[in-house]
């Protein structure tokens, strides 16, 4: 099918302000949007800059705004957009460095701020084997282990757009993953970190994050569970 592809372009070394380049191309409806960008690089303009790696929705490199919504470019097909006009822009809320590449550092800084790692200083089992955990205990945080840190959720969040100090849905998801892990012992520290203006209270349940998540994590539910834990003092 014939499509019109508009791609956000900005070269900080040449351009005063961003522009859109338009490409007309004949594509297969089953092509991924990432494929279209690769066609651009191969056949039209090899200087187009974007991040991508695994190309099947697992590495989280190519989150971007496609027709106004956040997707992984490798996980959305042309036909699913139901349009012969496709506009590709960088993620909102993070500084654009070049073309579709944004500065991910504020995102990772927020992620690191919630202590996203297992904390348990108790002695390991004497036999040196695994710490035990029932399947039910594991199910408690299964959903939030799926996060690939692509930033599609955080950069779809209006609260994050207005203030990048807000930890954002991705950081809360990763805090949730440890707060509800029966092997972890630092729920109290994480909940106190999130119990502040730029923590969970900044979430206004817009549900954008849940819609944007390419891993279909129930993010708003996870955030609500963290709020509950803060209010009740129980995990």
């Amino acid at each position: 099918m014939q499509i019109k592809l508009r791609v956000f372009r900005f070269d900080p070394e040449k351009d005063q302000k961003p522009r859109f380049d338009t490409f007309f191309m004949d594509v297969d409806p089953n092509d991924r949007v990432l494929d279209l960008l690769e066609y651009v690089k191969a056949d039209f303009d090899s200087s187009l800059a974007l991040r991508r790696s695994c190309a099947h929705g697992i590495c989280g490199s190519d989150a971007m705004r496609i027709n106004g919504r956040n997707y992984l470019a490798c996980k959305v097909l042309v036909k699913n957009l139901h349009s012969d006009q496709i506009t590709v822009e960088p993620l909102l809320g993070l500084r654009v460095i070049k073309d579709l590449i944004v500065d991910m550092e504020p995102f990772f800084e927020n992620y690191r701020s919630v202590l996203p790692y297992l904390i348990n200083d108790e002695a390991l089992p004497e036999d040196g084997k695994e710490r035990l955990q029932t399947p039910e205990e594991r199910d408690r945080f299964e959903d939030t282990t799926k996060c690939i840190l692509c930033a599609a959720c955080t950069t779809s969040c209006p609260s994050f757009w207005s203030d990048e100090r807000y930890v954002g849905p991705a950081a809360i998801v990763n805090a949730h993953r440890f707060i509800f892990d029966s092997r972890d012992r630092a729920a109290e520290r994480r909940l106190n970190i999130l119990n502040q203006q730029i923590g969970v209270w900044r979430c206004r349940t817009a549900f954008n994050c849940t819609e944007a998540c390419p891993r279909e994590i129930h993010i708003t539910t996870a955030i609500a569970e963290v709020k509950q834990a803060i209010l009740s003092g129980k995990v």
Binding site: Q133, E137, A187, L191, G199, W201, G233
Partner: peptide, 24 residues
């Protein structure tokens, strides 16, 4: 059954204005 025998944690959360405002 909890095979990890995790003590029911008493979590102390510092009260603050944002939490109260959210509840209000």
């Amino acid at each position: 059954m909890s095979v990890t025998a995790k003590e029911p944690e008493k979590i102390r959360i510092q009260k603050n204005f944002d939490q109260i405002a959210w509840m209000a």
